[in-house]
């Protein structure tokens, strides 16, 4: 799809989220809700010790949160899109100079960092950066600039991963 058209449509979805629910889109929040629920049910003794898991013990299951449902929609929507465009299929994408194994190791590391960073930034590229930019929030735009700024600063050192 034309990236500008895709962006325009994404903008309309974001606008609709603001108009209907008064909030932007987000992805990492759902991951947090999922984790909190899992840890809370598997190891309640452990969860009780940290205020981070307090949400699990307050009434209203975090699994019924807005973001979890949004994520469920994302899964449905992207599967649908992948299916009609014929992009379904197991595959590991990696740069020409690395093996799939290396790629998976770095993918795990990247995911770990992103999961950690999204907690500090109170949102990921969609929750903080994109939605923050739409409402012109200082925090959101700051986070966005730092994410991409850091990316560009360190891109040179990790170039073997991608090109």
């Amino acid at each position: 799809m034309n990236p500008y058209l895709a962006g325009f449509l994404l903008g309309l979805v974001l606008l609709a989220a603001f108009v209907i629910s008064g909030r932007g889109l987000g992805a990492s929040g759902a991951a947090k809700d999922l984790l909190v629920t899992t840890v809370g049910s598997v190891a309640p003794d452990y969860a009780e010790k940290s205020t981070f898991y307090a949400e699990y013990f307050t009434p209203g299951s975090p699994m019924k949160s807005w973001l979890v449902f949004l994520l469920a929609g994302v899964i449905v929507g992207s599967f649908f899109s992948g299916a009609i465009s014929g992009r379904l299929g197991f595959k590991t994408e990696h740069g020409p100079k690395i093996t799939p194994g290396t790629r998976l190791v770095f993918s795990l590391a990247g995911g770990l960092l992103f999961g950690l960073g999204a907690q500090f930034g109170r949102g990921c590229t969609s929750g903080a950066a994109l939605s923050g930019m739409a409402v012109l929030s200082t925090g959101g735009i700051l986070t966005m600039m730092v994410i991409f700024g850091t990316g560009y600063l360190v891109a040179y050192f990790f170039r073997k991963l991608w090109i």
Binding site: S78, A109, G111, F114, Q119, T125, S126, V154, L161
Partner: peptide
């Protein structure tokens, strides 16, 4: 802090949380 950590995460992992779910759904193992 979060921005810097996420910047590293982006370069290493090549995804951000939203897109990783999208990729996983259509079968990307990474």
């Amino acid at each position: 802090t979060g921005g810097v950590i996420m910047g590293f995460g982006f370069i290493l992992g090549g995804f951000c949380p939203g897109t990783s779910f999208v990729g996983a759904v259509i079968g990307k193992i990474d």
